[in-house]
Design a binder for these strands. Structure first.
Lengths: 170, 170
DNA sequence: CCTCGACATTCCAGTTTCGACATGTCAAAA
DNA sequence: TTTTGACATGTCGAAACTGGAATGTCGAGG
């Protein structure tokens, strides 16, 4: 049910069309809550039907700019403050670690060093991204910066762990 | 499609019934790949139909003990070595961070300190768990230990990050 | 003027996941 | 003896997610 709240959250910053939102999902939210085009348009329709958002303006090419309704903002705040975040930790990467025993030690080590490399690469990508953005003082910048810092720390942690783990394989 | 491989992986260690596997999912795999009872039984039937596992023994109360077929082991190895792990980073917890701007600074800080507390608690739980287990030298122990170490490092990282982030909110 | 790429939406078929419901057996404690 | 709780499986509908196809508009560059 979080896709709905992700959309409400983005619309709380500024009004946008489905197309705009899709772009945002593919860039800044890609690593946090991926969503496809069909999902986004479907959910926008539902949100409009429910009265949580409304069409503020129509532009060329059938463009519909949605804006957050007061009820939508209330729902967003309710979600943030009243509902417990569920740690949705489904991780393909970590699942594989449990079963490395069916491989040869060499293969298992390869997997772990591959993970270390991947983490190092993602860390570098995020660091590069951080440089390109000029961080203003507005809300979304502050919190975007905080989320990005999470990504940096996470990848550094995972790189170190994967290197340590590879060394554990005898 | 990873539920299928999780089941194959568990059966590679020892034969088990759907009920046994459900227990394992609720305990050791809960933080990595949660699955419900209906999902597990459904997938076991499909795996048996596909010939990747087979019923090794039937016990009381209709209990069916499944064992991994050679084709299943081959599929498991193929998954581990030939297919790229997809980083499935959908995180409710992190998504919320993006939208903390709609709350008051106090509320936003509360959320982050709550996350720090949660992480500290989970870290403590895992540390306690590590003490109760006597780590043998067999494959699953080694890799279970590696996965647990990930949990420890992850929660420590997240605690530090959340504390840092709370301090960023002005 | 024309073409091409970005803009923009809608629909759909198939798979995965979730949560609940339904059914029944066995062993041990009260 | 009865009752209770753990054992054990199966099925269903709704919701969420995936991936792609279909359709069309607009603006800028050649």
């Amino acid at each position: 049910m979080s896709l709905r709240h992700a959309l409400l959250g983005l619309l709380s910053d500024r009004q946008a069309s489905g197309y705009d939102l899709l772009k945002t999902f593919d860039t800044s939210l890609a690593n946090v809550w991926p969503a496809t085009q069909s999902q986004i348009y479907t959910e926008l329709s539902k949100l409009a039907d429910a009265g949580l958002i409304s069409v503020a303006a129509e532009g060329p090419r059938g463009r519909k700019e949605y804006t957050l309704a007061p009820e939508g903002l209330a729902e967003l705040r309710h979600w943030l403050t009243e509902t417990a975040p569920q740690r949705n930790t489904r991780s393909d990467i970590l699942l594989r670690v449990f079963f490395l025993g069916v491989l040869t030690p060499d293969q298992a080590r390869d997997y772990l060093t591959g993970l270390a490399d991947l983490s190092a690469r993602e860390h570098a990508d995020l660091a590069a991204l951080a440089d390109t953005i000029d961080w203003g003082e507005d809300g979304l910048s502050v919190h975007g910066r905080i989320a990005l810092e999470y990504g940096l720390r996470f990848n550094a942690m995972r790189r170190d762990w994967a290197e340590w783990a590879a060394a554990q394989i005898t």
